[in-house]
Simulated assay, not measured.
Amino acid sequence: MNIAYWLVAGPLALFYVYAGTLKVIRSRDELRPMMAWVDRVPLPALRALGTVEVLGAAGLVLPPLTGIALPLAPAAAGGFVLLQAGAIAVHLTGDDRRIALNVGLTTTAAATVWLASGL
């Protein structure tokens, strides 16, 4: 079960570290080609979202690595499920209807919740 967790949670954490870091350090103009919705949210909210993504990724990786606060891993994965539910809503209420990535991330995060429960 531990190997399965890392096979699922590792790439998920890498994705969120990358996406979150972009939201924190890049300007709206630099993000717009990748994220059509950036003009619909205030810049501080965008930066906060990026910070939450990076911290959530740390929550997926650090507790199982250190053996400290293990319940944080499924909580972080559950937070990503909720985050992606909100992302799907944002995409569907705007002009951008591409949600395949969001559905995949939701499914992966849900599997991570299940796998993290067995740590």
Rank of each mutant, 00 (worst) to 15 (best):
N2S: 14
Y5G: 02
Y5L: 09
Y5Q: 05
L7S: 11
V8S: 04
V8M: 09
V8Q: 02
A9M: 08
P11T: 05
P11E: 03
P11L: 06
P11Q: 01
A13M: 03
A13G: 08
L14W: 07
F15T: 12
F15V: 11
Y16A: 08
V17G: 00
V17E: 03
Y18Q: 12
A19R: 04
T21A: 05
L22V: 05
S27E: 03
D29M: 02
D29N: 12
D29K: 06
D29E: 15
L31Q: 07
R32H: 09
R32D: 03
R32I: 03
P33Q: 07
M34F: 09
M34K: 12
M34S: 13
M35Y: 14
A36W: 02
W37A: 11
W37C: 02
D39H: 14
R40P: 00
R40C: 09
V41L: 08
P42V: 01
P42C: 01
L43C: 00
L43N: 02
L43K: 08
P44G: 12
P44E: 11
A45W: 06
L46K: 06
L46Y: 06
A48W: 02
A48Y: 09
T51S: 11
T51I: 15
V52G: 06
E53T: 02
E53S: 05
E53W: 04
E53V: 05
E53M: 12
V54W: 07
L55Q: 07
L55W: 08
G56C: 09
G56L: 10
A57D: 05
A57G: 05
G59F: 07
V61M: 09
V61Y: 11
P64I: 02
L65D: 08
L65C: 09
T66H: 09
G67E: 06
A69K: 10
A69Q: 12
L70A: 04
P71V: 07
P71A: 11
L72H: 08
L72A: 14
A73G: 05
A75Y: 07
A76H: 07
A76G: 13
A77N: 12
G78H: 06
G78Y: 02
G79M: 12
G79V: 14
V81H: 13
V81N: 15
L82N: 06
L82V: 15
L82F: 15
L83N: 10
L83D: 13
Q84T: 12
A85C: 11
G86V: 14
G86L: 15
I88S: 03
A89Y: 13
V90G: 04
L92G: 00
L92P: 03
T93N: 08
T93A: 10
G94W: 11
G94E: 07
G94V: 01
D95R: 13
D95T: 14
D95M: 04
D95F: 04
D95G: 12
D96S: 02
R98I: 00
R98N: 06
I99P: 00
A100C: 00
L101R: 04
L101E: 02
N102D: 13
N102W: 00
N102V: 01
G104V: 10
L105R: 06
T106K: 03
T106V: 03
T106G: 10
T107C: 06
T107I: 10
T108P: 01
T108V: 12
A109L: 06
A110V: 05
A110Q: 01
A110M: 05
A110E: 01
A111I: 10
A111K: 01
A111V: 07
T112M: 03
V113T: 06
V113I: 07
W114V: 15
L115V: 13
A116H: 11
G118E: 13
G118S: 15
G118M: 14
L119V: 04
